[in-house]
């Protein structure tokens, strides 16, 4: 058997709604990720993809199943899994450099922490903004700081929860290129949650498509388009149409269900 880096085994998440009915958010999720792989988790709103990422991060407990990283069961959050959220979540009382030093502070001498932080800020091309405060930066810049903060603790895994969802199209596209470069330089394993089909095709090695009610994995698609992918527009468009058609059926199903519920 091939040894997988991340193993998600039979993960369940339920919660009690206001009528005290158990609702499945995630149902029997099984997923394996190899070291260094870039995997997108794609699905419509409400499919539980962010919840799944949060469980991997150790922020939300699963109600069933287990997650193993390097064969070790995950109990809580830790520095081996860096996370980037849709909002940058930078601390407003710290400047850019101090924000990136934040996770390193207790680990190494100040000087070393500062050098490491600067290295990752350079990676996202923000070396000129070290003493700026978050409120002085644009959304895209804030998100780049958040990415370098997550990278600075040198995690094995980078978890990204719709990190570019709140940004405009041009900024997003530039950050895609930057992320791809960072990924190839650092060899991180990336789990990337998105609802954008084109984003997932552009970036990932594999796309895990999820469906709703309950959240299940519908399909695991290998993206066999060589990088850099903007030279292969045709294949990208074909794959996008294929996934779009597939997801449409899924969404139609939910709308039908909602209509029958109402009537």
């Amino acid at each position: 058997m091939i040894k997988l880096f991340i193993e998600i085994n039979h993960v369940q998440k339920q919660y009690a709604d206001k009528n005290n009915h158990q609702v499945d958010i995630l149902k029997d999720i099984n997923l394996g990720v190899n070291k260094g792989e870039f995997v997108s988790i794609l699905g419509p709103s409400g499919c539980g993809k962010s919840t799944l990422l949060s469980i991997v991060a150790g922020l939300t407990p699963a109600t069933g199943g287990e997650i193993l990283v390097s064969r070790k069961r995950i109990e809580k959050s830790g520095k081996d899994r860096g996370m980037v959220f849709q909002q940058a979540a930078l601390f407003p009382w710290l400047n850019v450099l101090e924000n990136v030093i934040f996770p390193l502070k207790k680990e190494m001498p100040k000087k070393q922490a500062e050098e490491q932080a600067k290295k990752y800020l350079q990676m996202v091309q923000l070396s000129n903004y070290l003493s700026h405060y978050p409120h002085e930066l644009s959304g895209g810049m804030q998100q780049r700081v958040a990415i370098s903060r997550a990278l600075a603790m040198n995690p094995d895994i980078l978890l990204m929860d719709e990190p570019f969802g709140a940004l405009d199209e041009q900024t997003r596209s530039r950050l895609h290129d930057q992320l791809e470069t960072i990924w190839s330089e650092t060899q991180k394993t990336i789990l990337f949650v998105t609802h954008s089909i084109s984003e997932s095709i552009k970036l990932s090695d594999r796309i895990v498509v999820m469906g709703i009610k309950p959240g299940v994995i519908l399909k695991d698609i290998k993206v066999d388009i060589p990088r850099s992918r903007h030279e292969h527009k045709k294949e990208m468009v074909e794959l996008e149409e294929y996934i779009m058609g597939f997801l449409k059926k899924e969404i139609d199903k939910v709308i039908r269900e909602e209509l029958t519920h109402e009537s």
Binding site: A57, S77, G78, M83, A89, F91, P103, R149
Partner: peptide, 11 residues
């Protein structure tokens, strides 16, 4: 969000 972010950074 601040608390979640801090937790993923081991705080």
């Amino acid at each position: 969000l601040f608390i979640k972010a801090a937790k993923t950074m081991g705080v």
